[in-house]
Design a protein around this nucleic acid. Structure first.
Length: 996
DNA sequence: ACGGCCACTTA
DNA sequence: GTAAGTGGCCGTC
């Protein structure tokens, strides 16, 4: 129970009987936000999830203290907040905490509310300009401990661990974990008194404390245990045996000293409120209730009313001012809700993911995903239990349920996999596991062959009426829409005038936390997480030629299939969403994945114009070219055969003609790859080179000039590719149907196809591409001074590499020398091997090995980077990009040396390719707003890994290019300061070939 | 009708 | 040596 401190004057000194609790408010806010399901206040959609978590915790602490034992309640209690981002640390080191992304949009309004909540519970709410919460906590903790009192810090922040001592403990209430000296030792390898020394060496990437390069927690602890403290170590640095370590300690001594200043908490802040004044006072019942009512936390409101004895009915919701949100009429709607859901005895029906603030739980175990998965698996997936919604009233009730919950799983059924042509056939909804419905809207009679049959099946809600009911819910910001591969549904629904927002995508959630572990499709996720195999689409619609469209499916079958999808999607969300917070992937999901959905959907919707006539002419040209080659080939071979069959070709070349076969394919057949054929051609054989050119023409014709026109959408007259957001391990996008990321560019013939991609009349295409983005990213990540300098100075990077390696001046360099360096630079990005480089350059493996050796000698940082990455992937099973995306390689520890080496190369490549992909994504997410903000009509059409293609009105070309370039070149801001400049080349033309 | 293999296209 | 997708061939179902 709460102890009233009536015997204690407000500012007397503390005694040994006193117990001060200091809650680290700022970190708690972020933890509560990410760990708990999103929650918004009705009816205005004010986000209050973090506020709810905070209030529950505060109340529990005030009620029970930290442990269930009697007499452990606090006598003094304060919540400490950060005042502003700028502190004295930024004067010491401007980059301090510079990597911090802006807080999520829906968290911002909650900062003020949480301070309000603190005051509403009559708890001291402390913050002070120029100091971090940690400094205030340090100061109070020291003062209280000196006066003999016990102190408990409520936080999970490792930066506070330096304060732990005999009188000062720390507890993480979210993880239910206490930290004493033993835990500190476990984490830092030293006691609390040496934590600062270790941190100053190891640095901290989260807070951007630099530390000393090459020294992590382990090494730092080792050194401090040997030398005692930082200054002693630095003074004796020259005695360190390890070369690199010694050099770094000497070179970065000052950086370590600055780091020490950054991590040392200030224990003598001139606090405005003396520690003696932090005594606990009784909760003012009506005041607390007013706040809780205004928030709509019904269960906690009742609980507080019970304990304080305040009369609920006489208390009005307090008048809170949150910009953009009006205070709702609580007397009416909030109480109605309390009666409707809370007192109706529905506790048993509640699921673990229920966003009810009072059921969200104070303690979120780390294994929350497992716990939830178990609970959710226990609820059977019964596809016969779903409801078919055939009346507007029932549809309205489902939408009400979505509002009530604050979230709903949503799925569309349509006539086509192509979202640009798909017609809506029905939608399904689910609000809790096992509870889902299907709303048929466009089902037609099966036998529509004669007499123009195929009329709408009776009993369906008219599409227009259903959309009128669904639209407000799907667009309401207080209802989170959960979908699997939302881009598809978003595109379909936007064509029906519905803009789905806000949303989560279970496919992207899975991709964010598990990229590389397997597919992210719904069927696969369902089997992985729910042990449930959803009804296969084939079972409903068939496959191949006999496949029917979904509108022909009987409605009862459709309900079983469609509602199950929504049910499964909701369950997946309940399991996957909490993993974002517990695995620290929320920022990656929110900045790199989720916002891409509408961006890509709009790009796909716009499409791009292709010149059908030009492609048709080219097809003819290529056919002619092929016919010519064909005749020559048959002549040389002495018979006709199928040139497109590698098997038949092999028989001719290596059987009949007796040419020396080089490589074998993995099935044991002779390889007829271009490489093999070119080698044969180099020996003077006529036939192979004809085959190579025939194949090139054949490819251009079949894949591009013949196939592309088939992708022209009859309504828009344009080609709409589909981008996959979750298809690659590294974070790149992929493009399909058609793939517009592999349109030819290398050969003259191929570029003719590119010329067929054109701007519409009165417009130009702008192509903007990053120059050498992957090498720049590598220079930054591996921290290679020569490379960074070369990029700073705008040098030819391959020539510079050659010059550095072979000691030849850049002026008048032999092109062959540069070519070798270029191949090595690319090789590095691909996780180089002597075998691969030898292949690429046509040299011996020994020679290639020598090149690599020389390269590593000249750029030792690259070698370090590669070794460190390998170590990481073996230890963790994944690697990360500079923006925190993960790429998993679960089989990297295989015994098979070839496979192992392959995964290691992939793991070396992934952070480079993936970081570049992250940068592109950041640019794309910002691009539309920036263009609109500049009153420009440019439309982003395509992305090709390091290039963006826009369509722009003629008159705006000149003003658009600088905006595009600015967004792309500064795409890392403000989250990260890249230590190399990004360079973007941009050109405009009537077609893609000339713009590129 | 489907899927593996091989070849070719891109960054 | 990394990351993708598509089309033709051809064996299997």
């Amino acid at each position: 129970m709460i102890r009233a401190m009536s015997t204690q004057s407000t500012s007397s000194a503390l005694t040994a009987d006193d117990h001060l609790i200091l809650v680290d408010g700022s970190t708690f806010i972020f933890r509560a936000y990410h760990a708990l399901p999103p929650l918004t206040r009705k009816p205005d959609g004010l986000p209050v999830g973090a506020v709810s978590g905070f209030c529950n915790m505060l109340w529990k602490l005030l009620q029970e203290g930290l442990t269930p034992e009697e007499g452990d309640e606090p006598t003094h209690f304060a919540v400490i907040f950060d005042h502003s981002a700028q502190t004295f640390r930024n004067e010491i080191y401007p980059e301090y905490k510079a990597h911090r992304p802006d807080p999520p949009e829906d968290l911002v309004p909650q900062f003020g509310l949480i301070r309000e909540a603190t005051r509403a519970f009559s708890v001291h709410c402390i913050e002070q300009e120029g100091f971090e919460a940690d400094d205030l906590i340090a100061t109070y903790a020291r003062e209280a401990a000196e006066q003999g009192a016990r102190v408990t810090i409520v936080s999970g922040d490792k930066d506070l661990m330096q304060l732990i001592g005999p009188k000062v403990g720390m507890i993480d209430t979210m993880k239910n974990k206490t930290f004493g000296e033993a835990e500190v030792f476990e984490k830092f390898g030293v006691g609390p008194d040496k934590v600062i020394e270790v941190q100053s060496l190891a640095g901290d990437s989260v807070d951007n404390v630099p530390g000393v390069p090459g020294i992590g927690l382990k090494t730092a602890a080792l050194l401090i245990n040997e030398f005692g403290d930082l200054e002693t170590l630095l003074a004796k640095a020259d005695t360190i045996k390890q070369n690199k370590r010694r050099e770094n300690l000497i070179e970065f001594a000052d950086q370590a000293r600055i780091s020490r200043q950054l991590v040392t908490l200030k224990q003598d802040v001139p606090v405005k409120v003396p520690v003696g004044e932090l005594s606990v006072t009784d909760v003012d019942g009506p005041k607390a209730l007013g706040f809780l009512k205004a928030m709509g936390f019904t269960t906690l409101t009742r609980r507080v009313a019970d304990v304080t004895g305040a009369d609920l009915d006489t208390v009005d919701a307090s008048d809170l001012k949150v910009p953009g949100w009006d205070v709702p009429d609580h007397k009416g709607r909030m109480m109605e809700r309390a009666a409707g859901s809370d007192s109706a005895g529905s506790e048993a029906a509640k699921t673990p993911g229920d966003a009810d603030p009072d059921n969200s739980g104070l303690l979120v175990p780390q294994t929350v995903a497992d716990a939830r998965a178990q609970t959710i698996r226990a609820i059977p997936v019964d596809s016969s239990a779903y409801e078919t919604v055939t009346s507007l009233d029932r549809l309205k009730e489902w939408c009400d349920a979505a509002f009530e919950k604050g979230y709903v799983a949503f799925d569309t059924e349509t006539t086509s996999l192509d979202a640009m042509q798909a017609e809506l056939v029905g939608v399904s909804l689910s609000t809790e596991p096992g509870k889902a419905c299907y709303v048929p809207l466009g089902h037609v009679d099966g036998e529509g062959d004669l007499l123009g049959g195929g009329g709408l099946v009776e009993g369906q809600i008219p599409l227009k009426d259903a959309l009128e009911v669904l639209k407000p819910m799907l667009e309401d910001r207080s209802v989170l829409k959960i979908a699997q591969n939302l881009k598809y549904d978003w595109l379909v629904m936007t064509r029906y005038g519905v803009d789905i927002t806000p949303y989560d995508d279970t496919m992207l959630l899975s991709y964010t936390v598990d990229a590389g572990k397997g597919g992210n499709g719904m069927d696969e996720l369902s089997e992985r997480w729910l042990d449930h195999k959803p009804i296969p689409f084939k079972e409903i619609c068939g496959s191949g030629k006999s496949m029917i469209t979904f509108d022909k499916v009987a409605i009862d079958k459709a309900t079983a299939y469609a509602a199950e999808d929504a049910d499964v999607t909701l369950r997946l969300w309940l399991i996957l969403k909490p993993r974002l917070a517990s695995e620290h992937m929320a920022t990656a999901y929110e900045t790199l994945e989720r916002p891409m959905v509408p961006v890509l959907a709009r790009m796909e919707k716009r499409g791009i114009s292709v010149d059908r006539q030009m492609l048709s002419r080219l097809s003819g040209e290529f056919a002619q070219g092929m016919a010519g080659k064909e005749a020559e080939i048959y002549e040389l071979a002495g018979e006709s055969f199928n040139i497109g069959s590698p098997k038949q070709l092999g028989d001719i070349l290596f059987g009949k003609m007796g040419l020396p076969g080089g490589k074998k394919t993995k099935t044991g057949a002779w390889s007829t790859s271009a490489q093999v054929l070119e080698d044969l051609a180099a020996e003077g054989h006529e036939l192979p080179s004809r085959i190579v050119s025939w194949r090139q023409l054949s490819k251009l014709k079949s894949t591009y000039t013949d196939a592309l026109p088939g992708y022209i959408n009859p309504e828009t007259g344009r080609v709409h590719t589909s981008y996959a957001l979750a298809a690659t391990t590294t974070g790149r996008l992929s493009s399909s149907e058609p793939n517009l990321q592999n349109i030819p560019v290398r050969t003259e013939e191929g570029r003719k196809i590119r010329k067929a991609f054109i701007a519409e009349k009165g417009h130009k295409l702008i192509s903007a591409d990053y120059s050498q983005i992957e090498l720049r990213v590598l220079a930054h990540m591996a921290d290679i001074p020569q490379l960074k300098k070369a990029f700073d100075d705008g040098l030819d990077i391959h020539a510079m590499t050659a010059s550095e390696m072979f000691g030849t001046p850049i002026e008048g360099m032999d092109p062959m020398v540069r070519r070798r360096a270029k191949a090595i630079n690319f090789g590095i990005i691909y996780g180089i091997s002597a075998f691969g480089l030898a292949n690429q350059l046509g040299i011996s493996r020994g020679e290639a090995g020598d090149y690599i050796k020389t390269y590593f000698e000249r750029f030792p940082g690259i070698k370090d980077y590669m070794e460190a990455t390998k170590k990481q992937v073996h230890a963790n099973g994944y690697v990360t990009t500079i923006f925190g995306r993960k790429a998993h390689y679960p089989e990297v520890n295989t015994k098979n040396p070839n496979m192992r080496a392959f995964y290691e190369r992939a793991a070396i490549n992934a952070p480079i390719q993936g970081s570049a992909a992250d940068i592109l994504r950041r640019a794309m997410v910002r691009m539309e707003n920036r263009l609109e903000g500049s009153k420009l009509d440019a439309q982003m059409l395509l992305q090709v890994h390091d290039e963006l293609i826009f369509e722009v009105p003629d008159a705006q070309v000149e003003s658009t290019i600088p905006v595009i370039r600015d967004v792309m070149e500064n795409a890392c801001d403000p989250a990260l300061k890249l230590s190399v400049p990004l360079q973007v080349d941009a050109r405009a033309a009537d077609n893609w070939d000339e713009a590129h």
